[in-house]
Amino acid sequence: MKMKSVLFTCALAFSLWATQAQSIFDALENNDAVSSVVVNKSMFMMLSKFEAALDTEPEAKQFVEMAKNIQSLKVFTTSDKQVTAQMEQMVTKYVAQNKLTELMRARDKEGHVRFYIRPGATEDKVRELLMFVDQLSGQGQINGRKVENVLLTIVGDIDLNKISGLIAKMNLPQELNRVSKK
């Protein structure tokens, strides 16, 4: 009997932990000022099976290989200044909590791009890639273009040098190409 209750408590604790571990970014999905795209593993599995059934060019093959190993892809976009600040806080907290390392950061007139990774088996393979584009803290417009601040995370088995296929297929922000060393 005692054993059972211990097991039960463990299970409960685990399930609480599992739901919490989902990600602090999930709150952004319900924010009206944020546009979001969330793609899960099952979608990538099906996409790769769909692509594999076609007569494929090398580029599509690369996508299939990549897509099979992706757990999730989340893209959050906002033009709201406050939400951008909130996103930045989330990123800082997330990076610290999950011990991500900074891959690179770039700054120009238009703003800031930051990349963080969770290192994988080799230098080119990472288990998570996080990108945060902060365009001058979301101040209205730049050169007549609406400011779009982007938070993107990909979790899975990611080869940084093969990411261009994914960017093209999924219509992801071009900034991502910077992580490729080729």
Binding site: E29, S35, V37, V38, V39, N40, M46
Partner: peptide, 8 residues
Amino acid sequence: ETMMKVQM
């Protein structure tokens, strides 16, 4: 199981 969610 959720495959995809889009909010625009």
